Simulated assay, not measured.
Amino acid sequence: MTTVIIDYESGNLHSAEKSFQRMAREHDAGAVVVTSDPEAVRRADRIVLPGVGAFADCRAGLDAIPGMVEVLEQRVAEGTPFLGICVGQQLMTSLGREHGADAQGFGWIPGECVAITPDDPALKIPHMGWNDLQSVADHPVLAGIAPGDHVYFVHSYHVRPTDPAHLLAEVDYGGPVTAAIGRDTMFGTQFHPEKSQATGLRLIANFLTWKP
């Protein structure tokens, strides 16, 4: 079994690679490979799409790799287990609304990515650092993770799914902020599991052993 982490020049993937490789070894979950090759994605058993920066820039980075968007669309439609992280999660939705311009996402989970607007003006944007999960759905990728567990964020935007059933975890930051979304064989986290210590490693292990 092979899990691919897609490299499209959106952030340093070293910590993600190491965390996924560690959990794959500990749970006998096969190989983890960082790749920008669409053919490797076509052959993969699991797909991880990270992302750091602006929604539109990340989408443009994927579009710039010939065949990558097409193979992603095909494999997700076929039911390949998929994990989006940070902007990789935001791209799962229909639309990114950043900096006064709209950018198209994949539309796998209907909804949009919008700016965080805390009720408390003292709360700074970006939302950066540790936060406690406030609500957690019953989902195999969240097994063993509960309200109060700490996860690590760096972001100014979050996803608002159209269907509340697709919202799987939230944190509070002057109001509810989406922490995880998903449906079918897709799962996405706004936080960085590779930076979230024990909670993040548990989520990574859950994804690598998930059999949807």
Rank of each mutant, 00 (worst) to 15 (best):
I125Q: 04
A179V: 01
R25T: 12
P212M: 00
H139I: 09
P193F: 10
A31Q: 15
L203F: 10
D45H: 15
H158Y: 05
T3P: 09
D7M: 05
I65D: 05
S135F: 00
S135L: 04
Q197K: 12
G148F: 00
M23C: 12
R97W: 10
Q90I: 03
A137I: 03
A103G: 14
R75H: 02
P121R: 03
M23G: 11
V141L: 14
V136K: 03
L168M: 08
N12L: 01
S19Q: 11
M68K: 00
L201H: 12
D120K: 03
I85V: 14
D184S: 08
P66E: 06
M92R: 12
L201Y: 06
A77G: 13
N131S: 14
P81V: 13
A101I: 13
P176I: 06
V41G: 07
D28W: 10
V154C: 05
G53T: 04
S196K: 08
L49K: 04
V4H: 13
E98V: 11
D7Y: 00
P176N: 11
G105H: 07
I47W: 07
E170V: 15
T2R: 10
E78K: 05
F20Q: 02
A137Y: 01
V136M: 00
A169P: 10
A77K: 11
A115T: 14
D138A: 15
A77W: 10
A24Q: 08
T178A: 08
E98F: 13
P212K: 10
T199S: 05
P66R: 07
R202D: 01
F207I: 04
V114G: 05
P50I: 06
C58N: 02
R59M: 15
A77L: 10
H14G: 07
R46M: 07
G61I: 10
V177Y: 07
V34E: 02
A64L: 08
R160I: 10
M68W: 01
I5F: 11
G88R: 03
R202Q: 15
L72S: 07
W108P: 08
R25M: 14
I116F: 04
E26C: 14
H99G: 10
F106I: 11
G148L: 02
P161M: 05
Q74N: 01
V32L: 00
I47E: 13
A115L: 11
E98T: 13
G96F: 02
A77Q: 06
Y157E: 04
H127Y: 14
W210Q: 01
A101E: 15
G61W: 09
D149T: 00
V159A: 14
